[in-house]
């Protein structure tokens, strides 16, 4: 170990790895009493100890690989899920990321104390090498936990967004066998997926023979939105229902044509009322012609 050409930093990292392996049991026992582990593994302390050992093993792995500062070091992969679940359950308990981060910081001291004790016994003048390596490694662990916390947060947000989308896609039963879905806002891929599912469910649940997609509230119909509409209409047809798209405003109709999109395969009507009249007509329910509205909007 005294050979000068050895990279001292990687030497320290290796030494730290060996130390973590050697003291695995003691470290795990101490960590099991730390807030982070104790409050997550409430059922059994043995489980907490097991979880701690997994984290120690991961850290030892990373240290041996010499990639102390690398959040993407393979060693972390084995514990990322576990850390994510732990951070997630702390977050659910109402603690913010800064607090969780503080708890991760708290894991360092018990290990540092063991490290100090060991090198004091050996009266080793090079003790600062592994100590420094430990500081770096624990800093990286903090980042890994922080990343997983943020990731868990993003997942929560996208789940909530999905729930909101579902709420924002009401299926209105207009008549026996006729349902309408008024679309409002941007029809992106996620949203149109929800619309499609909602609509197909409605066809089954309400035995709808006609479904009306009203796009009066959709500000822009570009090629992607058009494609979504066509797919939805095609799916409805496959389920045995007829899909009518209503509420295509004049400016949007002109734009679609110039864009070069052929909506010819879809039945369209200017207004929701026209679409309903069409559907009723198909069910042999006579509808008197609408009087031309006097104050109708000149759009």
């Amino acid at each position: 170990m005294q050979v000068a050409e050895h990279d001292t930093a990687s030497e320290a990292a290796k030494e730290l790895g060996a130390f973590l392996e050697r003291r695995r049991e003691q470290i795990a026992q101490r960590w099991a009493d730390a807030t982070l582990f104790r409050t997550v593994f409430t059922i059994s302390r043995d489980e907490a100890v097991e979880a701690c050992k997994a984290v120690v093993d991961a850290l030892a792995d990373v240290a041996r690989s010499g990639r102390l500062e690398d959040v993407a070091a393979p060693g972390f992969d084995t514990v990322r899920d576990q850390l994510g679940r732990m951070a997630g359950s702390r977050a659910q308990a109402g603690f913010d990321p800064a607090h969780i981060d503080g708890e991760v910081v708290g894991l360092r001291e018990p290990v540092a104390a063991l490290l100090r004790a060991e090198f004091a016994e050996a009266a080793d003048p090079d003790a600062h090498g592994p100590t420094l390596a430990l500081a770096v490694l624990m800093g990286t662990l903090r980042l890994v936990v922080m990343n997983t916390t943020v990731h868990a947060g993003q997942e929560l947000i996208s789940r909530q967004r999905r729930q909101m989308l579902e709420v924002a896609t009401p299926v209105i039963s207009l008549w026996q066998g006729i349902v309408a879905v008024p679309l409002i806002g941007t029809l992106d891929s996620a949203r149109s997926q929800v619309v499609m599912e909602t609509l197909l469910d409605a066809i089954v649940d309400q035995r709808a023979a006609h479904v009306i997609l009203d796009i009066t509230g959709v500000p822009t119909v570009d090629s992607l939105v058009a494609q979504h509409l066509m797919k939805t209409a095609a799916a409805a047809r496959l389920m045995g229902a007829e899909c009518i798209i209503s509420g295509i405003r004049p400016a949007i109709a002109q734009t679609i044509v110039q864009l070069g999109i052929d909506l010819g395969s879809i039945l369209t009507r200017a207004t929701l009322a026209d679409a309903l009249a069409h559907a009723l007509g198909r069910q042999d329910i006579a509808v008197p012609p609408r009087p031309v509205a006097v104050g109708a909007s000149p759009r």
């Binding site: 570009d222 992607l224 004049p250 400016a251 734009t255």
Partner: peptide
């Protein structure tokens, strides 16, 4: 005007995507 606005916004949507 409204038609021009709609056309420009739709072109924007295509190109930005």
């Amino acid at each position: 005007n409204l038609v021009q606005q709609t056309k420009l916004v739709t072109a924007t949507s295509e190109l930005a995507r």
